[in-house]
């Protein structure tokens, strides 16, 4: 069963000069955890705002939970949950008042759907009389998620829920999403962090309003052509420059502790020749090994093509 369907969906701004979403089509199955992965300006927020009926498309169409995103906007608004990238709860209402407010607006009560938000809400319940504006980033994020969930939505849209959040809170947040998924809620989530992509069932890598690739994280990694090597030495900056000037290098970029390097001829083994080259350049303690590409490697490759 399809929960969300986009057909050539488009959005332009500034009298058509800026194409934010460029004829995008994809579908998300019911119960799927689907990730839109891309940097700022890729078009993620525009897509979310069209699907949640807050923005009218300039072309194409979209269906959410069986309803048309333009014609049936009222039906959609009652059925989906939306957590915008910018904190949008009432800063001068308390934690509990905010949650109550959203429950009431959607014609329900906290008690009725408490089971759904319980895991998350208990973490912020000690602060339920605190005003939302006074919460920390991690707690704001949890409250926003509770408010988006309290009416038991069929589809949940989360726009960059982990941006600017530290690595520990990010991990916790994704654990929460996995548990929600088990309850059968379809989740569309966007993130600029490539490492979060692997937790999704399927992902779309997007850039400049276009989809570069769409598949399961595993399949995207498997579709990476050629071999990739990790390499390090004592002087990493010099190493990067020297590797880039090596004649057989296709691409080389910093990747955490190592640099990742791909060669022009995919089939040839350059290891020995390269190590000699680096030795001549004065590098010491060079360490090189083949590695399995990550989603980030795939994204970089797609961006360069």
């Amino acid at each position: 069963m399809v929960a969300v369907q986009l057909n050539n969906l488009s959005k332009k701004y500034d009298k058509g000069k800026i194409v934010a979403v460029d004829s995008i089509s994809f579908s998300v199955d019911k119960g799927e955890l689907f990730g839109l992965i891309g940097p700022d300006g890729a078009g993620k927020t525009s897509i979310f705002r069209m699907l949640t009926t807050l923005l009218l498309p300039d072309g194409g169409s979209a269906v959410v939970d069986g309803y048309d995103a333009v014609k049936d906007y009222k039906a959609i608004r009652g059925r989906v949950g939306y957590m915008p990238g910018k904190f949008s709860l009432y800063q001068d209402l308390t934690v509990e008042e905010n949650l109550n407010f959203f429950a009431t607006v959607f014609g329900t009560t906290i008690r009725e759907n408490y089971e759904l938000v319980k895991d998350i809400y208990v973490q912020i319940e000690p602060f339920k009389t605190r005003r939302a504006g006074k919460l920390s980033g991690g707690m704001k994020q949890k409250l926003a998620l509770c408010c988006a969930l309290i009416h038991k939505p069929s589809v949940l849209f989360l726009d960059e829920p982990t941006t600017g959040v530290d690595a520990v809170s990010r991990k916790e947040f994704w654990e929460m999403l996995k548990r929600l998924k088990q309850q059968g809620i379809t989740i569309l989530v966007s993130t600029p962090y490539m490492d979060e992509a692997t937790i999704c069932d399927r992902i779309a890598l997007i850039q400049s309003g276009k989809i570069l690739s769409i598949d399961t994280p595993d399949a995207i990694v498997r579709s990476y052509e050629g071999s990739l090597f990790a390499i390090k030495s004592e002087g990493m900056y010099k190493l990067l420059n020297d590797l880039r000037s090596y004649e057989n290098t296709l691409s080389c970029f910093a990747f955490g502790e190592y640099h990742h390097i791909a060669f022009r001829d995919k089939m040839k083994n350059y290891s020995e020749e390269l190590l000699k080259y680096l030795e001549n350049k004065g590098h010491k303690e060079v360490e090189m090994m083949p590695v399995i590409p990550t989603i980030e490697d795939c994204f970089i490759k797609l961006l360069k093509n």
Partner: peptide
């Protein structure tokens, strides 16, 4: 480097 694509992020580190 918050929010930029992985290539731009690396150009920035350069």
């Amino acid at each position: 480097t918050s929010g930029v694509d992985p290539v731009t992020r690396r150009q920035f580190w350069d």
